[in-house]
Amino acid sequence: MNNILITGAASGIGAATARLFHQQGWQVGLLDINPQALAELASELGNAWHAQLDVTDAAAVKVALANFCALQSGQLRLLFNSAGVLQCGHFEAIELSEHARILQINVQGTLNMTHAAFAYLKATPQAQVINMGSASGLYGVPHLASYSASKFAIRGLTEALELEWAKHDIRVGDLMPPFVSTPMLNNQRFQAPVLRRLGVKLEAEAVAQAAWLQAQRNHVHRPISLQFQFLYWSGQLTPSWLTRRIMAWLGRE
């Protein structure tokens, strides 16, 4: 039986992915810091396994993984590191503690989960890790500086582990969507100019579909949406100075 453990599962991309994989017959494990929304989703999915979790708490992460995988014969087919936060705004206007929180959740949380999951992934044929990357990990986005930094880190981690863990039959990849219509993004008080110019054209369900495709065929990076796929592949050939000028225009106030 295939199984998937999802962080940030109570809303947005995590919840959409949980619904899709549950519909496809997978055993779904749900992790989130919001207990009420988590319980509601678990009930919707036939009392799916769930646990409240702060992914920055390394000790709690180990306990959650052990509890879920104990019910799965010690195996984990797919870990989806979906938990993440962002805050739009001028870098200097955002409290340093908030920048640190973004990095703690987006980067340290992913490290905690992936490190603790290794033994269970190694014990599972064709195991995978899917990390929640972003178009913001391709080139630094103005007014999302620390978020971009976190997604650059995820991109590097993904590339390194895909090479390092190949000998263990563990595939590692990330999803790279542009802006997605989720409560996290829609509730931002500051609207970054890049958001106005590019728009928010993706729904969480489209990213969930990409996660499903990734589970069938791993790519190190999976850019999502035709718009960003064009930017991604052209960016592999475009000189860095030109990319910088494009981002400067998109972020101009």
Results as ranks from 00 to 15, higher is better:
Asn2Asp: 15
Ile4Gly: 00
Thr7Asn: 08
Ile13Ser: 05
Ala16Asp: 03
Ala18Trp: 01
Phe21Lys: 05
Gln23Tyr: 07
Gln24Phe: 10
Trp26Ile: 00
Asp32Asn: 05
Asp32Arg: 04
Ala37Asn: 14
Leu38Phe: 04
Ala39Leu: 09
Leu41Arg: 01
Leu45Pro: 00
Ala51Met: 12
Val55Arg: 02
Thr56Gln: 12
Ala59Val: 10
Cys69Thr: 12
Gln72Ser: 09
Gln75Ile: 09
Leu78Tyr: 08
Cys88Glu: 13
Ala93Tyr: 01
Ile94Asn: 08
Ile94Phe: 03
Glu95Pro: 01
Ser97Phe: 00
Ala100Gly: 02
Arg101Asp: 12
Arg101Glu: 13
Asn106Tyr: 04
Val107Met: 13
Gln108Trp: 15
Gln108Asp: 10
Gly109Val: 05
Gly109Ser: 05
Asn112Gln: 04
Met113Leu: 13
Ala116Leu: 03
Ala117Cys: 09
Tyr120Met: 03
Lys122Val: 06
Gln126Thr: 07
Asn131Phe: 01
Asn131Glu: 06
Ser134Glu: 14
Ser134Met: 06
Ala135Gln: 12
Gly137Asp: 11
Leu138Lys: 07
Tyr139Pro: 00
Gly140Cys: 06
Val141Arg: 08
Phe152Ala: 00
Ile154Gln: 06
Arg155Leu: 09
Gly156Gln: 08
Gly156Arg: 08
Thr158Gln: 11
Ala160Leu: 04
Lys167Glu: 12
Arg171His: 10
Val172Ser: 03
Val172Gly: 02
Gly173Lys: 08
Asp174Glu: 15
Leu175Arg: 02
Pro177Val: 03
Met184Asn: 13
Asn186Arg: 15
Asn187Thr: 13
Asn187Phe: 09
Gln188Trp: 06
Ala192Ser: 13
Pro193Cys: 09
Val194Tyr: 09
Leu195His: 06
Leu198Ser: 13
Leu198Val: 05
Val200Thr: 15
Ala208Pro: 00
Leu213Trp: 09
Arg217Ser: 14
Asn218Ser: 15
His219Glu: 15
Pro223Ile: 01
Ser225Cys: 00
Leu226Phe: 13
Leu226Ile: 06
Gln227Asn: 11
Ser234Lys: 04
Pro239Leu: 11
Ser240Phe: 14
Thr243Val: 14
Ile246Gln: 11
Met247Phe: 14
Trp249Tyr: 14
Glu253Gly: 14
